[in-house]
Computed example of a mutant assay.
Amino acid sequence: MSIPMKLLWKEQSLVLWCFSASLLLSSCEGTGPECGSLDTRNSVVKIVSDDTDNKLVNFAVKNSSSVAAMVDDAKSEAEKLAIWEKARQGAVYRLDDTILMNSRNRAAREVTCIGLLYVTVADVTAEKEVEFKVKQTPDGKTIVSVNPFLF
C-alpha cells in the first residue's frame, strides 16, 4: 500500500469506530421509563389501594359471601360499617405479570401501559384492566399516574 492509501484506511477505520461508538452510546443513553419495573408496579398498586373511593375493592367487598355473612351477624349499623371497612383495608392487590405498553413518547420520556389489577377480599377476587402512565423527569425520577377506571 502507498502512504496516501494507508492514511485513507486509517481515516475510514477511525470514522467507522466513531460511528460504532456513537451508535452504542446512543442506544445506552437511557431507555426511559418502563411499564413492568418493580417500582412502577408497586406505585400502581399503592395508588389504587390508597384510593378511598376504590370501586374495584368496593365491588369485591359487596360480592364476598364471607363479608356478607359477618355483616348479617352484626347487630348495629356501626358494626356493619366497621366490617366493610376492615374488609377494604385487608384487601390484597396484585398487578398481573403481563403488562402491555400502549405508547412511548421518547421526547417526553413517557410510556402509557395497560395491565390487569386483581384485588382479593376474603373469598372473592375481582379484576379490572388498569391504564397507567410512567414518566421519567430530567433528573431521573419516575412519576406514575393511574387513569381512573369505570364500572
Rank of each mutant, 00 (worst) to 15 (best):
S2I: 00
I3R: 07
P4R: 06
P4F: 02
M5A: 08
L7T: 06
L7G: 13
L7D: 00
K10H: 03
S13I: 13
V15S: 15
V15M: 14
L16H: 12
F19D: 07
A21M: 07
A21V: 12
S22P: 01
S22T: 10
S22N: 12
S22F: 07
L23M: 13
S27M: 07
C28G: 02
E29M: 12
T31S: 07
E34N: 11
E34M: 07
E34S: 02
C35F: 03
C35P: 05
S37P: 12
S37Q: 11
L38M: 05
L38F: 05
T40R: 09
T40I: 01
R41H: 02
N42E: 03
N42H: 05
V44P: 06
V45M: 10
K46N: 08
V48G: 00
T52E: 05
D53Y: 11
N54L: 05
F59V: 08
K62W: 01
K62E: 08
S64F: 07
S64R: 06
S64E: 04
S65K: 15
S65R: 14
S66L: 13
V67T: 09
V67L: 13
V71E: 13
D73S: 10
K75R: 10
K75V: 06
S76C: 03
A78P: 04
A78R: 15
E79V: 09
A82V: 01
I83C: 13
W84K: 15
E85L: 08
K86M: 13
K86W: 04
R88S: 04
Q89G: 09
A91T: 10
A91Q: 08
A91I: 04
V92C: 08
Y93P: 02
R94V: 01
L95R: 14
D96L: 06
D96A: 02
D96I: 00
D96N: 15
D96E: 03
D97R: 10
D97G: 12
T98H: 10
T98W: 02
I99C: 04
M101S: 11
M101N: 06
N102C: 03
S103D: 13
S103V: 09
S103A: 14
R104M: 12
A108C: 08
R109F: 12
R109A: 13
R109M: 05
R109L: 10
C113Q: 05
I114S: 14
G115I: 02
L117D: 01
Y118T: 01
V119I: 06
T120A: 05
V121T: 06
A122W: 10
T125D: 03
T125M: 11
A126C: 07
A126G: 05
E129F: 02
V130M: 13
V130G: 14
V134W: 02
V134C: 06
Q136R: 10
T137P: 04
D139W: 12
D139I: 09
D139G: 03
G140R: 04
K141H: 14
T142S: 12
T142A: 11
T142Y: 10
I143W: 11
V144Q: 04
P148Y: 03
L150M: 07
F151K: 03
F151W: 09
